Amino acid sequence: MTAYVTSADGTRIAYDSQGSGPVVILVAGAMQFRAFDPTTSAMAILLAAEGFTVVNFDRRGRGDSAQAPSFTLADTIEDLRSLIGVAGGPAALVGNSSGGSISLAAAAAGLDISELVLFEVPLREEPGGEGAEFLAGLRERIAHGTADETIEYFMKDMPPEWLEGARNSPGWPVMTAMGPSLEADAESLAWTQSAPRAELFSDIGARTLVLVGAETLPIMPQAAESIANNLSHATLGQLPAANHSWEPAVMAKAVAAFLKGMPA
């Protein structure tokens, strides 16, 4: 059953919560929300059965959280702060793709975060200007381009078959409607290049598991190593996963084992 929490700027954030135990909040990546992402919803059920309170929410601009005045990284961090508050934190964050860079930024901002699990966060080299350039281009298309142009721009550096498959799928109109919300994804990735990561991550004390799939893009293992090398309590792990995705049971098992302190 959908519940709501009100964020700092008055935006209502929709979420569902299941299970009981330590709090785990699932932080979606680009173009994901509950009704459009059955894989994460299935994983949430399995993880809750492992003895956790699992919060799965629609990021602002998506699903039942569609109405919002702005979509910055700071907005999204405040949304997470409100969710942690209503759930009775501290909370572990499980960040998927750019949801992982949002989770890192939230931890660096001082939110009450106990652990981080990060899957295939697509970070570029540090420091660097590509992220800031990409963010500026995305903002330009959100402001002055079409909805299609915004998603095409966001996906321009992904394998071309991903964009082609998305464009030809029934979900394309749903994806294009989420365009403005991608600002936080791009801004969080730009943030990870804005200074040396040792400096950006210096206040993150949460125990962290950094995951990649066994079959993945070349950028992902390099990014995972960079994250792990610049955090004080990080472990690298690999899942039997491919194509920047994972199976619900596999991910639930990996997250539960890590949060329970079991060997990877």
Score class of each variant (00 low, 15 high):
residue 148 D to R: 14
residue 141 R to A: 03
residue 146 T to S: 14
residue 168 N to V: 00
residue 152 E to W: 00
residue 151 I to K: 04
residue 147 A to C: 08
residue 157 D to S: 14
residue 159 P to D: 14
residue 137 G to Q: 06
residue 155 M to L: 13
residue 147 A to W: 08
residue 158 M to H: 13
residue 151 I to P: 06
residue 156 K to D: 08
residue 149 E to A: 15
residue 148 D to A: 06
residue 146 T to W: 09
residue 141 R to K: 15
residue 138 L to Y: 15
residue 168 N to F: 00
residue 167 R to A: 10
residue 163 L to N: 11
residue 153 Y to P: 11
residue 165 G to D: 09
residue 151 I to Y: 03
residue 139 R to G: 07
residue 165 G to P: 05
residue 162 W to Y: 11
residue 160 P to Y: 09
residue 146 T to K: 04
residue 155 M to K: 00
residue 146 T to F: 04
residue 155 M to C: 07
residue 155 M to H: 02
residue 156 K to R: 14
residue 155 M to G: 00
residue 152 E to R: 12
residue 146 T to G: 12
residue 142 I to R: 01
residue 165 G to I: 02
residue 149 E to K: 05
residue 146 T to P: 01
residue 147 A to H: 09
residue 162 W to V: 11
residue 144 H to L: 03
residue 167 R to T: 06
residue 150 T to Y: 00
residue 137 G to F: 08
residue 158 M to W: 13
residue 152 E to G: 05
residue 166 A to R: 08
residue 156 K to I: 00
residue 162 W to N: 10
residue 156 K to P: 00
residue 154 F to T: 07
residue 161 E to C: 03
residue 137 G to I: 06
residue 143 A to H: 02
residue 137 G to A: 08
residue 168 N to M: 02
residue 140 E to R: 08
residue 151 I to H: 06
residue 153 Y to E: 02
residue 140 E to Q: 14
residue 144 H to D: 05
residue 157 D to V: 02
residue 138 L to A: 08
residue 156 K to H: 14
residue 164 E to C: 00
residue 159 P to M: 09
residue 149 E to Q: 15
residue 145 G to I: 00
residue 158 M to N: 13
residue 139 R to F: 00
residue 164 E to R: 09
residue 164 E to P: 04
